[in-house]
Nucleic acid binder design. Structure first.
Lengths: 185, 185
DNA sequence: ACTGTTCCAATACGTCTGTATCGTACTGAA
DNA sequence: TTCAGTACGATACAGACGTATTGGAACAGT
């Protein structure tokens, strides 16, 4: 699919030049296509950006589903949550790219309500899922608040790792420590 | 000071239009001055951006110092840390503006090493300060790791509040819960 | 009074942006 | 074979961008 090919080029350009440096011409050059072709598949730049974001969240959630299927006990809440959260941390080069693009869109969301709405939806779903799992297998606590803490922790550490302020291993250790506190060791 | 006046205009423009929308002409219009005058005080745009960032971090740390002076027990580590962290959360409109501008620069740092170096320095100082306070008044723990957790928590919740994913009160409650866990209630 | 410097406004220049437009292959149906 | 529609490439266009240039007040030093 051409749209997907363009979206992946957009990710790479965003990593190299950040969102503000991501122009139509740069994406087209990175994808090895003409600007005219991009206009054929995306009527406007925003349409392309939103597709690139959507395409990426889809890729991440598909991968999380794969991890779920690989679990020894697919119904264990702690291992499910662990698999889901770890899959979003920038632990290798591929996930680092995804995290970077995600952060770029997140800051964009602070200004542009269209992106904010999209990300808010995703956040809500993630939060609801975490609440469900915490209630199912966690120690007694305020599941809604703990879910927010988990998400903030993952986002904060992702940012920290990307900015070179701490290592991915530190992030992983902190998230796992929090999971131990929630679900038991 | 003219430079300060321009910097404050730059903050407002960044909040309204994000960093990519922050042009010389817009900042000049917001500050009520001519582009030529801005060029007189800042030879290039990057010079202006770096001054605006520096000026803002200075403002925040000055305000943190004021909070320290207002503490009943200025030497209590927990209340000091609490004051410092709370002062960076987007709890009111002024701090929301600062947090917003900080996030904008954070994405810039992903591409431009000058901004990355500046922010990394600030993070290192904040981390060192937290480690010191945790060691001084906290329960026995890995102070370095706990400091990273605190910073990630503040950053993650700041982002979440700005993107409309959770409320400032939730962020505050989570940070205070973490402080209770670290220092005792 | 002359001169140099600082402060600032106006404007011009070249580049980059998103997008509109035009032209041209190719495809499948009638 | 004709024709409509799709899938592009090439180019044009208007505007915004950062910055260089120019020129003129205001002021200081001599």
């Amino acid at each position: 699919m051409r749209r997907r090919q363009i979206a992946e080029a957009m990710w790479r350009v965003t990593v190299a030049r950040s969102l503000e440096g991501t122009s139509m011409r740069h994406v087209a050059a990175e994808a090895g296509v003409s600007v005219g072709m991009m206009q054929h598949y995306f009527r406007t730049k925003d349409e392309m950006l939103l597709f690139a974001l959507d395409s990426m969240t889809e890729q991440v959630s598909r991968r999380i589903g794969e991890r779920f299927a690989e679990l020894a006990d697919p119904d264990d809440p702690k291992h499910q949550v662990r698999a889901a959260l770890v899959e979003t941390l920038p632990l290798d080069e591929e996930r680092r790219l995804e995290a970077f693009v995600g952060c770029a869109f997140l800051t964009r969301a602070a200004v542009d309500t269209r992106f904010a709405d999209y990300l808010r939806d995703g956040h809500r779903q993630g939060h609801a899922y975490l609440v469900e799992q915490i209630n199912r297998g966690g120690r007694p606590c305020d599941a809604a608040e703990e879910a927010h803490v988990l998400l903030a922790l993952v986002n904060g550490f992702t940012l920290g790792v990307l900015a070179g302020q701490c290592t991915a291993q530190q992030a992983l250790a902190a998230v796992e420590a929090r999971l131990d506190a929630l679900f038991g060791p």
